[in-house]
Design a protein around this nucleic acid. Structure first.
Lengths: 159, 159
DNA sequence: CTACGATATTTGTAATTACGTATATTTAAG
DNA sequence: CTTAAATATACGTAATTACAAATATCGTAG
């Protein structure tokens, strides 16, 4: 659906401004989808993302630092997000044997079962393969990467 | 920059999954930019968005309901976001004369001045016109609209 | 006029998040 | 061994956000 119809009564300065808002809007739209699915299972979208990351590692574990690095969205307090997943029995926490500063987070069978239940619903809602072609996905990735890039040669803002 | 380099150690299933994460990642990246700029002026990105909407209406006003509809991101409690802008003197609130259920929100001169100070910084960070071509902006809009669309003819999920 | 449902916003409260600080452990230097 | 700097995580507290319920007003049917 065209952005103008979803954000009613809005007039865009130009196609670049529309693109900016379109990225934000579509990102929020996707996040809202994940949130509403997750909510039905007693977690939020960040919890879901963490479980997805941990399933990708299973049967290996990941420590909070690694999870933080991979999370697309840094929103939330990772310690307390993990507290909740732990309390729900979806992950286990153990002090790392080699480096006792670190904590090994492992997805439990219960966590894997939850994801398995959610998979078909998430797949159905995402459904990117039916929404855009492979060529479009490639184009999209290229343009988005370009947006975050540094065409003017400036480094990442330090400080 | 390529997404793989920013989300380290990540392996994507396919280009569609990468596109999904790329939208989320780029959206968060843009939001983080707005947040860090806004923070320097004592507000957050949602406050900034609201002020932008109100400037678009100026010298007319908008009621909370209209603002909510236009906001790309529904995060936050609009009443209390407006409380803060009001307390900071950036907007004024007056009961609408014709419909006393509604509240006219008007950006003040102080609010306009703040946006004017922020404009060059925001422009510099966004800088979409230097990042992507007009054709790319159009392509991006088309693909994003398609993602949110309903290719299979299903209506918006009701409830 | 009165009652009722619909609409627009606000408020109460609990949960979540931000952010600085604290704790614990490791690494390396003296 | 002791100390200091660096790293990894947790915690305290204030601010923000979510969600449900409350308040106030409007439109309209009787």
């Amino acid at each position: 659906m065209k952005l103008e119809d979803e954000i009613k009564q809005y007039h865009f300065q130009d196609d670049w401004q529309k693109a900016l808002l379109n990225i934000l809007y579509t990102g929020n739209w996707l996040t809202d989808n994940f949130m509403s699915i997750s909510k039905k299972y007693g977690i939020n979208d960040q919890h879901y993302n963490i479980l997805r990351i941990l399933r990708g590692r299973h049967p290996k574990c990941a420590c909070p630092g690694e999870i933080r690095q991979v999370l697309v969205n840094k929103r939330g307090d990772l310690t307390r997000l993990l507290d909740k997943l732990d309390k729900m029995g979806l992950v286990s926490r153990n002090v790392n044997a080699e480096n006792r500063r670190m904590v090994d987070i492992l997805i439990t069978q219960q966590g894997l079962d939850l994801l398995k239940k959610m998979d078909p619903i998430v797949d159905h809602v995402e459904n990117f393969k039916e929404r855009i072609t492979h060529k479009e996905a490639l184009t999209l990735n290229q343009i988005l990467d370009k947006i975050r890039g540094n065409p003017s040669g400036q480094g990442k803002e330090k400080e």
